[in-house]
Design a protein around this nucleic acid. Structure first.
Lengths: 111, 111
DNA sequence: AAGTTATATTCGCATATACGGATGGTATAT
DNA sequence: ATATACCATCCGTATATGCGAATATAACTT
């Protein structure tokens, strides 16, 4: 499948946006070591089942997760585990940025 | 500065969300090779100046950009250029994912 | 001080997103 | 067929986000 730069840019921002939610970030990390059922994820995140289901659905629509049914359960897993590595890199950089520039985040306007 | 896992998680999702907008993604990439003035960025993105200014402001509030005034102009630059490398990694992975699973994104529900 | 350039902010509006609770659907078991 | 377990979707609501147009602020010039 050929993909233009514009399409890639769109996908890129869409994926970043879908990661840009604490619950969804937690879901991705929870699946770091393999597939889990919805119910298990509900237990881990401790939020209502419909909430988890909606976030999982969004992540799947954006290609980050895939599903597999086993009886009545549905197991979600990462489409590409390299995503976690990338998120870890980002987290590491952010960690350093926070420690270095300390209170400089959210600083006052330039004027 | 000590930073808890929760705080880091918050920052992480906040930063991802701020990257999750096409304009802001374009702004970050535009600044890949050094600082640029707001007006220059307006020319590159070809969107109204207030729109650019608002997106820049958000990116700065989230720590991704820093500013420096030079006369009447304000130059924005990346706080940490490693961010671009991370975004490139993600873009590369997404590119491969799209090419591999072709039309599988946005596929139909599991039921 | 008045004018000019560059940038930031405000306002009103439209759209998108997230949530809880209820409901709907699917698969297995009895 | 009924019951149960598991998951997805709908509904109404509250909040967040993005935009264009107009306006405000800051710095430099004359």
């Amino acid at each position: 499948m050929r993909v233009s730069l514009d399409e890639l840019e769109m996908l890129h921002s869409k994926v970043c946006r879908s990661v840009g939610d604490v619950r969804r970030l937690q879901l991705l990390y929870a699946l770091e070591n393999g597939a889990l059922s919805v119910n298990t994820l509900v237990g881990i995140l401790d939020v209502p089942q419909p909430t988890v289901s909606r976030h999982l659905s969004l992540l799947r629509q954006n290609g980050l997760l895939t599903t597999e049914r086993a009886g009545t359960q549905i197991f979600y897993s990462l489409t590409d585990t390299r995503i976690i590595g990338i998120l870890d890199n980002m987290r590491q950089v952010l960690h350093e940025m926070v420690e270095n520039q300390s209170g400089k985040l959210d600083e006052m306007p330039v004027g």
